[in-house]
Every structure is written in C-alpha cells, then in structure tokens.
C-alpha cells in the first residue's frame, strides 16, 4: 500500500469539484429540459391528428436509435453550421443532452399517460371539464405516480452518460480525474476514486428508488 498516494485527491480537490459541478449541471439541465420537451413530444404523439403525431414519433425513433456520442458530435458540429456561429462546447453538449433525453422522457411520459384508463378521461369530460383540465387534474397526477420510478432510473443513466462529454472537450468528473491521473502519474488512485464516487451515487439512488417503490406498494 505504500506505493499509493491518496493525498493526490486532496491536492486536486477543487479541480475535481469543478468536474463534478459540470456533471451535476448536465444532469439537471438534461432532466428538466428533457422532461419539458419530452412532455410536449408525448402530447404530440398522443394526438389523434397524424400530422402532429408522426413527426414526434419519427423524432423519438431516430434519437433512440443513435448513440449519445454521435448526438453530442452532431450538435457540436451541426448547430454552428446551422446558425452560422460557434456556440461552444458547453452549450452544444447541453442542447444535445436535452434533445436526447427528451426522446426517452417522451416514451416514459406517454406510457404513464396511457396507463391511466380511458374511462377516467370520459368521467372527467362527462362532468364538463375541458380536455386540458382533465389532463391536469385527473390524468397527469395518476400518470406521474406510475412514471416516477422510471424518471429516477433515467436520471441515474444520464448521470453515468455525462462522462461522454469528453468527446467535445468538456471536463466532467471522470475527465478531470483522468487529467489529474495523467498529470500526477496516479491513475490507480484517481480511477478508484471515480469508481467509488459513481458507485456511491448510483447505489444510493437505486436504493432510494427501491424504498420509494416499496413505500408505494405497502
């Protein structure tokens, strides 16, 4: 054990924290943006008008069949071409994450809404509520309950996926750690730290998810 120098973690702490902050920012923006746009896409897909439903369905299918790395590259190179000026790594990565996650949240939200019996909508409409009111007061509260575990699960996946932003030269937690590892010649310590941190965060979230499910069942 004498060959290990765990002090490297303490010395590079503030740099690592910056990486963690970026990962957290990506998770937060991807989740909130993805849920908002995903909700819009889900409503489009549930429309009986095919002109509205088909584009959303096509978007979801395309996004879900592409690897995230490709989507990251895509927005990094294509967005500047489309708008005629560079937008920077961070902005392109945030957009890519939001657009990618939106496709997954769309499917989660759509499944949640479909899970609510049609009769519930009929009952609401029959009392004179408008469609938007039925959605807000009757369908969504029930759909949210069914969706919550899936959304939490998706957040864990996004957190793990944030490590991919190194391809557009951003420094997330894993990337900062590997820079320190190379600079100080301490790969074992740094990669162990990364593994432990990912493990703790993902295990505790999974545990929380389990407790939530049990709480609902009980």
């Amino acid at each position: 054990m004498s060959d290990f120098d765990w002090g490297v973690i303490v010395r590079s702490w503030s740099f690592l924290a910056e990486g963690m902050a970026l990962s957290a920012l990506l998770v937060a923006v991807a989740t909130i943006g993805g849920l908002v746009i995903g909700f819009g896409l889900a409503l489009m897909r549930l429309s009986s008008n095919r002109l509205i439903a088909s584009p959303a369905a096509a978007y979801v299918t395309v996004m879900r069949s592409l690897p995230l790395v490709l989507v990251l590259f895509w927005f990094y190179f294509l967005v500047p071409l489309a708008i005629g000026r560079p937008i920077g790594s961070l902005a392109s990565a945030l957009i890519a994450f939001v657009m990618f996650e939106a496709a997954f949240y769309c499917e989660i939200i759509r499944a949640g809404i479909n899970n609510v019996r049609q009769g519930q909508t009929e009952a609401g409409l029959a009392t004179g509520l408008r469609r938007s009111q039925v959605m807000r007061h009757i369908v969504m509260p029930q759909a949210l309950k069914a969706m919550t575990p899936l959304v939490l699960n998706q957040i864990i996946i996004v957190f793990q996926d944030t490590s991919l932003v190194y391809v557009v030269a951003l420094h997330d937690f894993l990337t900062t750690a590997s820079i320190v590892a190379a600079r100080d010649g301490r790969p074992t310590e740094m990669y162990t730290l990364v593994a432990v941190v990912y493990l703790i965060i993902c295990l505790s979230s999974t545990k929380a998810l389990e407790l939530y499910r049990k709480g609902r069942a009980g």
């Binding site: 009769g119 009952a123 029959a126 009392t127 004179g128 509520l129 408008r130 509260p141 029930q142």
Partner: peptide, 19 residues
C-alpha cells in the same frame, strides 16, 4: 363541456378518481 356539465353521467366501472 358546458352542455356536459348540465348532464350527469354514471359509469359501469364508477370511474372515481383514485388519487
């Protein structure tokens, strides 16, 4: 909706809001 508000309806499966 305004018309429906003046006609009550009761369903076979009750369809009360479970939440």
């Amino acid at each position: 909706p305004m018309l429906r508000a003046r006609i009550g309806m009761v369903f076979q499966n009750f369809e009360l809001y479970p939440h």
